[in-house]
Design a protein around this nucleic acid. Structure first.
Lengths: 243, 243
DNA sequence: CCAAAAGTGTTTTAGTTACACCCATGG
DNA sequence: CCATGGGTGTAACTAAAACACTTTTGG
């Protein structure tokens, strides 16, 4: 009998099992900067450090359902974009016990966080300071507004770094960016979201045409009001179907 | 105390834990067609059906190590390209018990399978018949050489479909395709691999230039021998570093 | 010399970028 | 009328594709 056959056939009840958790990277663009929802840990280990919202997966609960449950309990909302990111399973990533964590990554418009943040002082929307040129090993620092770096618990800096990379990678070819905007938005707002996420600036006419030529959005005929300049047309996403 | 706080703080020992397995999608290009390694299940459930090679994750073993262990025990090799694909966690995906499976996807040149396949009659390299135009929900059928469809156990058809999608998506911008070729290869062989994976045909001059302009490969000065036509130059990958 | 695949040069096309400019609004 | 961002047209650039062609081998 080979090792393969042995492992294929063995009874897992006879062996210790890991705990399985879901961690959520909930991101938004706020005031022109990419930000992520962090929770200050009330207990050891890593007491006082900042962590991604997370929780254990119920024994009869699918991974997706666990992630949606976190969306509801931590952000008060289960709309928006959510997708599985990656699974982290180093044996000692949690000092208490073996925990395998399935990371999810989600996006919401910044305005949707207001209600939850007002009630939960342990939660913050931390702007991300990403060393884009010198990024090493997916490391990302989440900075406080005071520029005092927040220390991330466990391997959560690695998870956050991967989420940012995924967001940047999918921004151009998927409809992911629209999850950060309200139902109706201007092309200038759309460009602002792209620039905040990628940390670059775009040529305005080129960006407009690229977006319009895709056929994903259409003008509503309505216009923004109240600004001290020419009011922009409001656009909307024709179909939310994920390309 | 909110549900979030409760779940964040609870003792997982007090609750049942799922088993965690790793399933391996080991693919290659053989005779101009994409193929995956499948194992015929000797026992119930799904006895006689075909399944991806898999095994449980050891309590002190990282996910990556478990995947590499499978590479060794099922394919006899731990070289080549390997990366995590996705985690599958529907509560009833395995009728015996709750199993969360972290799928990995790996690539090897077809020639490396010969030794293992000769010794293991339960393993096959099944050519993939992918309905590219009418692909629905990531479904992929693995066909026997006799065109009798192999039935895949559990949710393995879904896993295989996602692996094919990932391979196709990364083929153009990453060095993933070179994992299916020997150390030294011709541009024609490289084009054949791309055409087999994507199910399309490429214009030869355009493909050559695109590959050479990338700066990833360089000619060795040596040439193929034995063919009944002009011998092609052998190229090699300059650096295996993953872009 | 012929078949077959390797390899090269030139033209065409499509997608993006750059730049210059006009438009509409509040103050 | 002016500052500000919205919006449009045209030219320039670049990467890819299409096509026609030459080269080198075994038989």
């Amino acid at each position: 009998m080979t090792e393969a056959d042995f492992l294929d056939g063995y009874d897992p009840n006879a062996f210790p099992r890991p705990s399985v958790a879901v961690d959520l990277v909930l991101m938004t663009v706020k005031e022109g900067r990419l930000a992520a929802l962090l929770q200050q840990r009330p207990n050891h280990p890593h007491k006082g450090d900042w962590a991604l919202p997370g929780g254990f997966v119920g024994i009869e609960e699918s991974l997706d359902d666990a992630a949606k449950r976190l969306m509801t309990t931590k952000a008060g909302l289960d709309e928006g974009w959510i997708e599985q990111l990656y699974s982290f399973g180093e044996p000692n990533r949690d000092p208490r016990m073996r925990v395998i964590s399935v990371a999810y990554f989600a996006l919401l418009p910044a305005a949707k966080f207001n209600a939850t943040l007002a009630q939960r002082p342990d939660l913050v929307l931390a702007p991300l300071e990403v060393p884009w040129a010198g990024e090493v090993g997916g490391q990302v620092l989440a900075l406080a507004e005071t520029a005092r770096p927040r220390i991330l618990a466990f391997d959560h800096a690695e998870i956050l770094g991967l989420a940012v990379k995924r967001l940047r990678g999918k921004l151009d070819y998927s409809k992911i960016g629209f999850a950060l905007l309200p139902e109706r938005f201007t092309l200038g707002e759309l460009q602002g979201v792209h620039e905040a996420i990628l940390g670059t600036e775009f040529n305005k006419p080129a960006f407009r045409r690229r977006m319009l030529d895709r056929g994903w959005i259409a003008g509503t005929g309505e216009r923004q009001s109240g600004a001290a300049f020419r009011p922009a047309e409001l656009y909307h996403l024709i179909s939310k179907e994920r390309t």
